[in-house]
């Protein structure tokens, strides 16, 4: 996994949902850590698609819980 992917993802997530970036860990459950629901996750998908210039089909993100695993999904689309 590219380190910059994870870093960028966590920065975007922190910015989008007003979280403290220093408190986020790669292994965190991003839904629980950010306190977001599935509709708010859609906002993050748009941010990620725009930032990385990729498409992230929702169905590929089912079961993705951590920042780390989401970063891996992003890398497979880059």
């Amino acid at each position: 996994m590219a380190a910059d992917t994870l870093t960028t993802l966590m920065k975007l997530a922190a910015k989008r949902f007003g979280a403290d970036l220093s408190q986020l860990r790669p292994e965190d459950d991003l839904f629980e850590r950010l306190g977001i629901d599935s509709f708010q996750a859609v906002e993050l998908i748009s941010d990620l698609e725009n930032e990385f210039d990729i498409e992230l089909p929702d169905y590929e993100l089912q079961g993705v819980k951590t920042f780390e695993s989401l970063a891996q999904k992003i890398d497979k689309r880059r």
């Binding site: 998908i45 725009n50 169905y59």
Partner: peptide
């Protein structure tokens, strides 16, 4: 058939 969402760019 996928039920996926697409963004504004697409």
């Amino acid at each position: 058939l996928s039920g996926r969402s697409v963004g504004a760019k697409k």
